[in-house]
């Protein structure tokens, strides 16, 4: 059923669980696995600070990706990792369409109401706009 699974990874505990769940599914279903992380710049993007954040995000995610690739390899699953820039929900939905994912797997962070009001919920936005099924891992 699911041949292409996309994991949205933001280095949180919940998204690490989401990766493990997706890896397990990919192994059982012989599906391809993609891991996407989104570097969200501060708004409005300020000079010098934005380039610094972008560099740090790439380095930070690359460390986690290394571990994920090792996990996937030992499970016999092919995994592709990438970092994109922008608003998390938009980039996840767009990349899901681009890589023709059948399923998006993401963690639920359960942020405060104030934070949700100010920044919006990424999982709600992805659920609203995703071109495929979405699994929220708690």
């Amino acid at each position: 059923m699911f041949k292409s699974i996309l994991v949205a990874y933001d280095a949180s505990k919940a998204s690490a669980h989401a990766f493990l769940a997706a890896l397990d599914m990919a192994k059982q279903l012989h599906a391809n696995l993609s891991v996407l992380s989104v570097a969200q710049l501060p708004e409005p993007a300020a000079m010098v600070e934005s380039s610094a954040m972008l560099e740090l995000a790439k380095e930070h995610y690359e460390k986690d990706f290394k571990r994920m690739r090792a996990d996937a390899q030992s499970a016999g699953v092919t995994v592709e990792t990438r970092v994109m820039v922008g608003h998390a929900a938009e980039q996840i939905v767009h990349y899901a369409a681009q890589c023709k994912a059948d399923l998006i797997v993401m963690g639920h962070r359960g942020g405060s109401r104030v934070r949700e009001w100010l920044l919006g919920s990424v999982s709600k936005r992805v659920l609203s706009y995703a071109p495929c099924s979405v699994l929220i891992v708690r």
Binding site: L54, Y61, E62, R82, V83, M84, H94, Q98
Partner: peptide, 10 residues
């Protein structure tokens, strides 16, 4: 075109 990733690995 589609956005370019800033880092990709397979």
């Amino acid at each position: 075109p589609a956005p370019e990733p800033v880092a990709v690995a397979k």
